[in-house]
Amino acid sequence: MNISELAQRSGVSVHRLRRYEAAGLIQAGRSAGGYRRFDERVLREVTFIAMGRALDVPLPVLAQLLPRYRAGTLGLDELMAQLRARVAEVDAVIAAQRALRRRLVDHIAWCERRKARAQSKAPASPFPTRKARERQP
């Protein structure tokens, strides 16, 4: 199949397929006219890569898994271990973002306290307010 058919059947853009080929993740043969020709098995590999990317698995990790996936030796236990490792990475990012949020909220509160102090220590106006004039004897 040609690259546009592979893109249509896999749901992966032609541009992305070219990137995968350039990265060595998939291989294409060439027709007599020099066009890319992909074997049917590449559709399965592209689907595997696309599913991994949808889970934000980095391409280098997918590149390490792909030979075993092709050979049929990538076990579910290893795949689940990779996914658990990715969950741990996501949890670490979430924790870091929560900590950053707490620091931001604390800083906003600090700014609000400074603002309130500055307003309470504001110099008196040289012109008395109406209330101040009413209090004068």
Rank of each mutant, 00 (worst) to 15 (best):
E21V: 08
S120E: 15
Q136V: 02
R37Y: 00
L104D: 01
S13V: 07
A50W: 01
A54I: 01
R135M: 10
G72K: 11
R117Q: 14
G75Y: 11
R133C: 03
A99E: 13
V61K: 15
A109G: 01
V46Q: 08
E40C: 00
I108H: 05
Y20S: 02
V105I: 14
A92W: 05
F127Q: 10
D39T: 12
R19M: 10
R133T: 03
T73P: 01
L55V: 06
L59S: 06
A122E: 12
R84M: 00
P60W: 10
Q82A: 13
T73Q: 07
W110L: 15
P126N: 12
R86N: 06
R101T: 14
F48C: 02
R70N: 02
L43C: 07
A124W: 10
R9Y: 02
F38N: 04
M1Q: 05
M80D: 12
R44Y: 04
P126V: 11
A124S: 12
P137W: 07
A7T: 03
V12F: 04
F38H: 08
E21H: 14
C111W: 10
G24V: 10
D91Q: 15
R133Y: 04
A96T: 10
L25V: 11
L6Q: 02
Y69T: 01
R113H: 08
R98S: 02
F127Y: 05
S31D: 02
S13T: 15
V61Y: 04
R114T: 02
T73R: 07
R9P: 01
R103E: 13
L100H: 10
I49K: 06
F38Q: 03
N2C: 03
Y35A: 06
A122T: 08
R117A: 12
S10A: 09
Q64L: 07
C111K: 13
A32T: 14
L59M: 10
A95T: 05
L76E: 11
A85T: 09
F127W: 08
L59K: 08
V90L: 12
A118P: 00
A96S: 13
V42W: 07
G11H: 05
E89D: 13
A96P: 03
Y69P: 01
A118T: 06
H15Y: 12
A22M: 11
A92H: 07
D91K: 06
K115M: 07
A54H: 08
I49T: 08
H107Q: 13
A32L: 12
A124K: 14
S125Y: 10
S31T: 15
V87R: 15
V57P: 02
A88C: 07
S31K: 02
L6E: 01
R70P: 03
V12C: 04
P58G: 03
L55W: 05
L76P: 04
Y20H: 09
R101W: 05
A85C: 10
V90K: 00
Q82S: 06
V61I: 12
P123F: 03
L62W: 03
Q119H: 10
V87W: 00
S125Q: 13
R114P: 00
P123R: 08
R53K: 13
R98W: 02
R36F: 07
A92D: 11
R36P: 02
A71T: 08
M51K: 12
V61R: 15
L100T: 10
